[in-house]
Design a protein around this nucleic acid. Structure first.
Lengths: 212, 212
DNA sequence: GTCTATACCGTGATAGAC
DNA sequence: GTCTATCACGGTATAGAC
């Protein structure tokens, strides 16, 4: 790890992150990247193998620390005598908010890119991520079991699935109703505002009675 | 509207729908479409203007009837003395289930394509849709007001926003946790199974107490 | 090992002949 | 309306310079 930033792969990563966030994956060409990073076109394929692999590298550089933060918060949760649904959700929400406020790690725009990548069906990323970060889902499944012990296991999995779906969707800034109306339904892009409305919604959803 | 199926635009639409559903938008090339539809490559741009516009045409051909069904169900809701949150949600869910079971209208795969298109940030589709189908959101906003009269207006908008987000995400078959684990969290692809778990989740979420 | 120049093939789009 | 030819741009592969 060199300290000086003449490193080719580092410049490619930094420029790629900014352009992927600004223009999305399809909207960013390798020629845009290599031009702004002042490296040769072939450098990307030499160092990363492909455009897909480059995206994975950009993505995982931020995902790793985020997941580490979440798992650390989950550990602290064990110290609580009787943690509630809200406590559990905040172990995920707090690191996301923290990341969204740290421009050095990509800031709010990167959280959007990250969430959108998860919500959409992004490429082969699964292979890389599941091996390294499968523990993320395992730990949260255990925590959900502790917080919602009376719920059927299958039903609990569905709710965890739905809950992460809403939260990632919210952080992605997606608005499925947006195409139907000229004015946005919800105006706020501020993550804190989003969480304020999001949290009671998800908490109540998770505490619903069992179906049938 | 010709009855015989030698019509060029009709063949393009039918083939496009199948290929978009199978391979997605980016994964479907105009050359694949024109080859299977047995028309010339330039025919697409002549009849539709662009690949984007072709997708819009395919999309709106199914969206129109679906929205009409939902609005019809909303009208019937007015006859109920005191409709509940569940009744309201079913005016949207029933037409979606119906569409997903009708292969002649694209079936379950098309519902996934439709939901994914809404969840993702698809192109200029907004211009076309908002003018014709803006009424969809207006009517549902009114219905939410009737069913949840005690809720603050802003809070109600947020919940409607979140609620449609979960539902479209569920119908899209998206699983944000999928990339973290080899085995799917939730296995069922059957729309009825999805709704069974989805409905109580969303109903409870919408009935949450106001934040702070 | 690292970087460069360049060529290859598939993509969506378009002009102009018929 | 239809078709052919052609264009610019995309990701990728490779030969060869340092």
């Amino acid at each position: 790890m060199e300290t000086h930033r003449t490193d080719t792969t580092g410049r490619i990563l930094d420029v790629s992150e900014r352009l992927f966030v600004e223009h999305g994956f399809e909207g960013t060409s390798l020629r845009m990247i290599t031009q702004q990073a002042e490296v040769n076109l072939a450098a990307v394929n030499y160092h990363f193998g492909s455009k897909d692999a480059l995206f994975d590298a950009v993505f995982i550089r931020r995902l790793g620390p985020l997941i580490a933060d979440c798992l650390a918060e989950l550990e602290q949760l064990k110290a609580l005598a009787r943690p509630g649904v809200s406590d559990l959700l905040m172990t995920f929400i707090r690191p996301c908010l923290s990341l969204s406020k740290d421009p050095a790690r990509g800031g709010a725009m990167f959280v959007r890119l990250l969430s959108r990548t998860l919500v959409e069906n992004h490429r082969d990323l699964r292979e890389t991520v599941s091996q390294q970060y499968g523990v993320f889902v395992e730990r949260y499944a255990e925590a959900f079991q502790r917080v919602l012990p009376d719920l059927d296991a299958v039903e609990r999995d569905w709710r965890m699935h739905f809950a992460f779906g809403v939260m990632f969707n919210a952080f992605a800034g997606n608005d499925v109703l947006k195409i139907f109306t000229r004015s946005q339904i919800v105006s706020a892009r501020d993550p804190d505002q989003i969480v304020k409305h999001l949290l009671p919604f998800v908490v109540s959803a998770l505490q619903a009675g069992a179906p049938q």
